[in-house]
């Protein structure tokens, strides 16, 4: 069974910037682990450490029980990564891309050719197999890279922002693919798209300023947050003063109130009486993300003010 166990992973770069701050979590079995967070939250640093590209400053992680600081070579036998902004080399064809990558993994040329064809076929890339990568669409190029790492037989795959820059159809195609692959692989992906994490992930890690603010399934994240409902107020702003409700600025700039079921109906009735336009929903990952990240920013600012 595949597993990743992080124990207090921290990373401070040489110029003093703290990219990871004591990150700990455990993920076992096949499936998708999505790490979400803003730019600079520490997602890529985390994934690069787990993929043995970068040394942590403190803490460690066990990949399938093997310590990544002590035995990176052993880990590299069963992991593979598509880094952020990775591109299929322009002057190669998809087949040549996969063949050369397999050879980097120590596989012989003839065997690599067979495996490359199989892997590209599995991802429905047989028509593009001998075209130059530079002539392929963005989505197809990304699929070539996914085919490349899948061909290796690695059971733990790291995908750093795999759908960034893809059009909605290519993104949806890649989602379908990842959804089928998650039965066979442990896939760790980072993303800015909350919808992507919501649709694909078995577990979600929310990161902000190098810290892991939350780590669980979407349902558990919902349960952990004391607010279950989100009321989006449109076009105006109202003052609320309840202990079991919190007001935040939503993504679209509208006021959003997070609260529990009883208070939600009470506030809704009050809004109807006032003639205010609003909508009420169960909280989404987006609401959880916004609440946790904003709370973290406020706490950080308060700490800074005190010091």
């Amino acid at each position: 069974m595949q597993s990743i166990v992080c124990r207090g992973l921290s990373k401070t770069y040489s110029k003093g910037s703290k990219a990871l701050d004591s990150v700990s979590f455990k993920f076992e079995g096949n499936g998708i682990l999505a790490i979400i967070g803003r730019n600079g939250a520490g997602k890529t640093t985390l994934i690069r450490i787990l993929a043995t590209e970068l040394m942590p400053t403190k803490g460690t992680a066990l990949i399938n029980g093997i310590d990544l600081i002590k035995e990176p070579k052993k880990i590299r036998e069963f992991i593979a990564i598509v880094p952020q902004e990775a591109k299929a080399v322009h002057w190669l064809t998809p087949k040549q891309t996969v063949v050369s990558y397999l050879m980097y993994r120590g596989i012989g040329f003839s065997q690599a050719k067979i495996k490359a064809e199989e892997s590209l076929k599995k991802l429905a890339l047989e028509k593009q197999i001998n075209k130059l990568n530079r002539l392929l669409s963005g989505g197809t190029k990304r699929k070539v890279l996914v085919a490349t790492v899948l061909s290796s037989g690695a059971k733990i795959i790291f995908l750093d922002e795999p759908t960034t820059g893809l059009d909605p159809i290519s993104r949806s195609d890649l989602w379908k693919l990842l959804n089928t692959l998650k039965k066979e692989y442990l896939i760790v992906l980072t993303t800015h798209y909350l919808e992507e994490a919501e649709r694909l992930a078995d577990k979600i890690g929310i990161m902000e300023q190098g810290k892991l603010l939350a780590f669980d399934t979407l349902n558990e994240l919902r349960k952990k947050l004391k607010y279950k409902y989100s009321i989006k107020i449109i076009g105006t702003e109202i003052k609320i003063n309840y202990k079991d409700a919190v007001s935040i600025n939503g993504i679209d700039g509208n006021q959003q109130i997070l609260t529990n079921e009883n208070r939600s109906s009470q506030i809704s009735q009050m809004l109807i009486k006032k003639g205010v336009k609003f909508s009420t929903n169960m909280i989404t990952l987006e609401d959880i993300f916004y609440y946790l990240v904003k709370k973290s920013i406020i706490e950080e600012n308060e700490d800074n003010d005190e010091s």
Binding site: R48, A51, E53, P83, A86, H90, Y101
Partner: peptide, 22 residues
């Protein structure tokens, strides 16, 4: 070019290839 523009080196670092062989 391979390291900065295509990130090939990052993919290879996470594979069984050693720095010397690369």
């Amino acid at each position: 070019h391979l390291k900065n523009d295509f990130k090939l080196q990052d993919m290879v670092v996470s594979s069984p290839t050693s720095a010397v062989n690369y």
